[in-house]
Design a protein around this nucleic acid. Structure first.
Length: 273
DNA sequence: AACTTCTTCAACCGCCGGCGA
DNA sequence: ATCGCCGGCGGTTGAAGAAGT
């Protein structure tokens, strides 16, 4: 059979779930020969699949070093934190979770973490948090906030009681700093952001967002973030004294506080009235 | 027990950017 | 400069199992 449009043999690929036999064939082949060009893998491995399907199966399921267990609280915390900064950049988020794939992170976000956020919102007076987190991409939002802060009117918003909203803005606009640029500021020798896919596994073994490399300031933030995530704003306030824990972001991350709004507090710091 | 609805997640789809011819 | 191929990514789908009635 020949496809007239492209003059190439038309192959009907198998779709759907992979059988244990197919998994075994693919695993054996790649461990023995490497994948090389994915488009050539199915034929060489004796599979009725297309190259993309093989690649996906290998990356998401067969690749050595993958975890197949439930997400831990620590992992969820990292996902939450990075998602507020990066938006739906699942592959970048997954880089910081050894043994997790972008697909897994994405699925976990959509099925579990979104719900937790809704729960948090239900117990929080600050309704914008979930809304912000639902945004498709965090970076444009940052730009928008930066724009908004050029207007004095942007400093007039008032959050609902019992909390008082304090704006920590009103700084001169700062140059845009991308996550990839500033992450190494607190993560030390982070090469995973620019590492090719093939190197990621090794890089992930030295995941950078762990407590060993986080600066004390970021650890301080982590504590609060985790408390908010797990218990909501009320408990976080009780837990540590929310206001006291937050400081202008340049002290924490080393650059303008507007980046802090990427953590979805929208420039509002909640304190006891 | 039977049926319906909901949830989860593996896999597919389409788009995009990089690269070589 | 253009084209085609390829890998990578994020959004979406749908099968399978769980939970509810």
């Amino acid at each position: 059979m020949v496809c007239k449009a492209c003059e190439k043999p038309k192959v009907s690929y198998k779709k759907g779930l992979w059988s244990p036999d197919e998994d075994q064939r693919l695993r054996d082949f790649i461990l023995k020969h490497g994948h090389g060009r994915w488009s050539s893998v199915p034929a060489r491995a004796g599979l009725q699949r297309n190259g993309k399907s093989c690649r996906l199966r290998w990356i998401n399921y067969l690749r050595p070093g993958l975890k197949h267990s439930d997400f831990t609280l620590e992992e969820e915390r990292i996902v939450m934190k990075l998602h507020t900064i990066l938006g739906n950049k699942w592959s970048q988020i997954a880089m910081h979770l050894p043994g997790r794939t972008d697909n897994e992170v994405k699925n976990h976000w959509n099925t579990h973490l979104k719900k937790k956020l809704v729960k948090i919102e239900g117990s929080s007076p600050h309704a914008s948090m979930t809304k912000s987190l639902e945004s498709d991409n965090g970076c444009p939002k940052l730009e928008k906030l930066i724009d908004e802060n050029k207007s004095p009117d942007s400093l007039k918003s008032v959050s609902p009681t019992p909390y008082r909203s304090i704006h920590v803005a009103n700084h001169a606009p700062s140059p845009k700093i991308l996550f990839a640029d500033w992450l190494p500021m607190f993560s030390g020798n982070d090469q995973s952001l620019s590492a090719p896919e093939s190197d990621r596994v090794n890089c992930q073994q030295e995941s950078t967002l762990n407590s060993e490399v986080l600066s004390p300031k970021l650890l301080q933030f982590d504590t609060i973030f985790t408390e908010v995530f797990l218990h909501g704003f009320e408990d976080a306030r009780i837990y540590g004294g929310f206001k006291l824990q937050f400081e202008p972001v340049e002290q924490i991350f080393g650059f303008h506080d507007q980046a802090y709004t990427g953590l979805e507090l929208n420039h509002d710091v909640f304190v006891n009235p």
